[in-house]
């Protein structure tokens, strides 16, 4: 018998269903005929919509994962988490007068960041395995490039935010770090030269 024919029992949002073992959690719900609209996105694990709580049959532990990336398993219990982003932080890059002021502005925008109590909850919660807490620590120290580099794979699922007891928005801290790095420091000469040539009209298009 091929693997695809093997069926497993899972409970999704309180509904017990029996589905082939080759399905993701979302596919399983659809397969069983249940509607699922909210909390579904790219289905490739990059949009952060389909956050689920997962408890596997052999453990008391509940982990947080992406529903489209989680394969069903026998006895698994799953629950979708649909909530709006709880972040209260607002800023614009233009409010930072120059690159000397980034750190000062950072602490004005994210005053809680330095309250980090090092509980590691954000890093544990991250479905992408990012060293979230380390990133916050680096940003607090003004090491924005290093901090931002840790968040390459961040999909803004907000699980680090809901998991933070100090209401730090670690993913937004990471994104801020990335944005200021590009905004203040990316000045590619090949791009700048090309812009200049287009501006002077040196490069024109001969249409078909």
């Amino acid at each position: 018998m091929s693997d695809s024919k093997k069926e497993v029992q899972v409970t999704i949002n309180g509904k017990q269903i029996c589905v082939p073992s080759t399905l993701s959690v979302i596919q399983a719900l659809w397969h069983a005929g249940y509607p699922r609209v909210q909390g579904v996105g790219c289905l490739e694990g990059v949009c952060g919509s389909c956050r689920v709580l997962v408890r596997r049959s052999d453990t008391q532990e509940v982990s947080m994962e992406m529903g489209c990336q989680t394969l069903v398993e026998e006895g698994m219990e799953v629950m979708f988490l649909v909530f709006p982003s709880p972040s209260q932080h607002t800023y614009t890059l233009e409010q930072i007068p120059n690159s000397w002021e980034v750190q000062t502005e950072f602490h004005k925008i994210f005053p809680e960041a330095q309250q980090c109590r090092n509980c590691h909850g954000c890093s544990v919660a991250c479905p992408k395995g990012i060293s979230v807490e380390k990133g916050v620590e680096l940003a607090v120290k003004g090491r924005f490039k290093e901090a931002g580099d840790l968040f390459v794979e961040c999909i803004m699922c907000d699980l680090c935010m809901t998991g933070c007891p100090e209401q730090i928005a670690p993913n937004r801290v990471g994104l801020f770090s990335r944005r200021v790095t590009a905004y203040f420091h990316a000045r590619p000469s090949n791009l700048i030269n090309r812009l200049e040539k287009i501006r002077t009209g040196e490069l024109q298009i001969i249409k078909e």
């Binding site: 709580l53 509940v62 982990s63 590691h120 909850g121 544990v124 919660a125 699980l159 998991g163 007891p165």
Partner: peptide, 18 residues
Amino acid sequence: SSCGQCPSCKTGTFYASQ
């Protein structure tokens, strides 16, 4: 009051209260 160490606790209670 949840201390943050266990994401299922912090996020779970947050979600429930919401």
